[in-house]
Design a binder for these strands. Structure first.
Length: 689
RNA sequence: GCGCCCGUAGCUCAGUAGGACAGAGCAGCGGAUUUCUAAUCCGCUGGUCGGGGGUUCGAAUCCCUCCGGGCGCGCCA
């Protein structure tokens, strides 16, 4: 079998050769993809460093490397060339490229197409923590990025053969949960009274309008609303609401109402029955968290709110083609019972240190400050790792002065579970954890990961990566919002992308109804447009470096030119149409037949073949750096090189039958690579467009 | 104030375990089609890699400094 990662093969050989002639056998052998095609396919830059070490001139060092490595690579590369000052230019033998591609078997029916790539020898147990919406809220663009990027990681790491566990750490507990429950009751009661959502929206607007108004203005309005609500709570059995059949949009409306109401109260005292209204949400939160039969109503309402939210999220995941499933939802509530133990562990482990001598490593200390339980983090020189704007050391608070826990506590409980308890098919405990959140949470992650290390839970053997990403901005360069200043709803965003894609598709199809395209009926068009629209939204999220902010633009993501989903899908569809055409004219041919040889005589054929062979190297980079945009760039290059091949090298009209089969094989290998590659990005291909 | 991210062609962005005259797409200009899908391909134009120092045989990439932008910084998540 031919080694599929050519870069790895070259690296190993050069490293060994450099070791044999007196260089560092563990050092980077400096093998890179060539900076320019005229320098070959790869290059080795190790001679300059080696020359210094051995007291040689760089060209001499290069000579020695070449002499040492050449015999082992005779089958793989053309004679190595040395260029000034000491670059070694590496050009793969065309016969080697052809053999690599010939070794890729046709895809087995029903099985995953692996393009001949082996799975990793040592699978990691990876947790990818992504998406993580809050309950009772519609998903918006912020969640979109985490969801799409995280899903690409899951797919790529899974494809490589790692053991991947998806975790959707949803916000289903926390201090705001009382408002969610109250919101559920409120909306259920009002709907039962026959009120329409529009009326509730009006009431919310009324509340918002009270902001900044004098107390005398606010008081009567608030009293009136509170009185109506009290009546609901008295006259209607809360039982009836516990299983309310409402949609997430309505639940969210109720929640927003409660938020608006509380915000409008300010220093006023508004009573609902015997309670001061402003304290009711916290009271409900406490009742839920205490549990027990007397708080069963709160429990049921919480469970119902969660069900509604999970069902809503799942429908969006299904629409997006995201792998997350209900069993992957393991939110904050799952760790509630572990939180006291986290505090205990912190208390027992993070003892005060002797500062007169350096510490062995970074460490943490647990202290109570103003009633809050705090973890202070220090480096080995006893310097605080984090500071507040006043220059004082900044702790991570794990328990508030009122006894409540915070997300840092939950995150610690979650990582403990993931490292020690969570079960993979191949064993217990993750060896790699990937968190996919926006970049603003970076400091929080540094803090709680430092605490996890200080606790001894997180050891250097575990690879933890915080895959951050930038914000989605509107045309005004501010975080994307609607005209009304609301978050853009994900569902509406997808609707828009799909309908724009459909409009373009219809235009094209009406313009030219060639036999390759048509005939496509309404349902087929819609399905193609759906794939283009969803694909465009996903691709535009993946195509640039995660960390950069970007301006959301339908026009840019749906452009037919450039590094976009439509261009990729077009390239794929065009290749597929060759098959239909060849079969229509010549009957069924088997480009994978035993006598078929891949011919790479034309430069366009060779360039395409080289790109195909680089797929494995690309995936290694994507997986190691968690950089989906590297895969996008690869696929874009592949598509471009295929188009060039396609322009220059006739398939149907090839000079000979064997050349036709060779080119059909190249076409199919390209199509498969595009399909697999796009699939790893979570994008479904189209057979025609 | 401290910390993190960013500044590359008119626009949008690649390129950082240092490597050869800095790449692509879009836009602009000029070509290619009795089509294997022109949602394509080819060519041209276009850059003080934010400024300045330093390390190095070699710096967009590493270090220092300054300028400009974004984000974060104690009981929210």
């Amino acid at each position: 079998m031919i080694a599929q990662s050519t870069l790895k093969l070259l690296r190993d050989r050069f490293r060994a050769a450099i070791g044999r002639i007196g260089g560092d056998p563990d050092a980077d052998p400096g093998v890179r993809v060539a900076t320019e095609a005229r320098f070959g396919d790869f290059q080795c830059n190790a001679a300059m460093a080696l020359a210094r070490k051995l007291g040689l001139k760089p060209p001499e060092a290069a000579q020695r490397i070449v002499a040492a490595v050449a015999p082992e690579l005779a089958e793989v590369v053309e004679p190595l060339e040395i260029a000034n000052p000491g670059f070694i230019n590496i050009r793969l033998r065309t016969s080697y490229l052809a053999r690599c591609l010939e070794s890729i078997e046709p895809p087995a029916a029903g099985a995953e197409d692996r393009l001949g790539l082996p799975k990793v020898a040592q699978p990691e147990r990876v947790i990818v923590d992504y998406s993580s919406p809050n309950i009772a809220k519609q998903m918006h663009v912020g969640h979109l990025r985490s969801t799409i990027i995280g899903d690409a990681f899951v797919r790529v790491l899974g494809f490589q053969g790692h053991d991947v566990l998806r975790q959707n750490h949803i916000g289903d507990w926390g201090t705001a949960i009382g408002m969610v429950i109250l919101g559920l009751w409120y909306i259920a009661a009002r709907l039962q009274r026959g009120e329409r959502p529009a009326e509730i929206e009006k009431r919310i607007a009324e509340l918002h309008a009270l902001r900044g108004k004098p107390d005398e203005t606010r008081q009567p309005v608030l009293e009136r609303i509170a009185a109506e609500w009290s009546l609901d709570l008295e006259n209607q059995a809360l039982d009836d609401f516990a299983d309310a059949d409402i949609q997430l949009e309505q639940l969210e409306l109720g929640y927003i109402f409660v938020q608006a109401l509380v915000a409008a109260i300010g220093p006023l005292v508004i009573r609902v029955k015997r309670d001061d209204l402003i304290a009711v949400p916290q009271k409900v939160t406490r009742m839920l968290q205490q549990g027990g039969p007397e708080n069963e109503l709160e429990r049921r309402a919480w469970r119902r709110a969660r069900e509604i939210s999970v069902a809503y999220c799942q429908s969006l995941y299904d629409r997006l083609g995201v792998l997350l499933k209900p069993e992957d939802f393991r939110g904050e509530s799952a760790y509630n019972d572990d939180l006291p133990r986290v505090i205990t562990d912190l208390r027992l482990t993070l003892k005060p240190r002797d500062r007169s001598r350096p510490a062995a490593d970074a460490y943490g200390e647990l202290r109570i400050d103003q009633g809050a339980t705090c973890v202070y983090l220090y480096d080995a020189k006893h310097q605080p790792r984090f500071k507040n704007p006043d220059g004082q050391e900044l702790p991570m608070i794990v328990q508030k002065s009122d006894g409540a826990y915070l997300y840092a506590t939950t995150d610690l409980a979650a990582i403990r579970y993931r490292l020690m308890e969570c079960v993979f098919p191949a064993g217990k405990g993750a060896t790699r954890i990937v968190y996919v959140t926006d970049a603003r949470q970076k400091q929080h992650f540094e803090m709680f990961l430092a605490a996890a290390r200080a606790l001894g839970w997180l050891t250097p053997r575990v690879n933890v990566q915080h895959a951050t990403f930038g914000s989605v901005l509107g045309e005004d360069k501010r975080p994307l919002k609607t005209r009304a200043g609301k978050n853009v709803k994900l569902a509406e965003l997808l609707d828009e992308a799909e309908s724009r894609a459909l409009r373009t598709l219809d235009e094209k199809l009406d313009q030219e109804t060639g036999p390759q395209r048509g005939p496509l009926d309404e349902a087929q068009r819609r399905e193609i447009a759906r794939r283009i629209g969803v694909g465009a939204v996903k691709y535009s999220d993946l195509v640039r470096d995660r960390n950069s902010d970007y301006v959301f633009s339908f026009d840019a993501m749906l452009a037919m030119e450039g590094n976009t989903a439509p261009y990729m899908l077009y390239a794929y569809a065009r290749i597929r149409s060759i098959y239909r055409k060849v079969e229509a004219r010549l009957g069924k041919l088997d480009p994978y037949g035993p006598d078929v040889r891949i011919s790479l005589d034309r430069p366009e054929e060779r360039t395409l073949a080289l790109r195909l062979v680089r797929f494995a190297d690309t995936l290694d980079i994507v997986a190691a750096d968690l950089a989906p945009h590297v895969l996008c760039s690869y696929l874009f290059d592949l598509a471009g090189e295929f188009m060039r091949f396609f322009e220059a090298c006739p398939v149907l009209q090839a000079e000979s039958d064997s050349l036709r089969l060779s080119r059909m094989r190249l076409c199919d290998l390209t199509a498969r690579t595009l399909r697999v590659g796009l699939g790893l990005l979570g994008i479904e291909p189209v057979e025609r467009m």
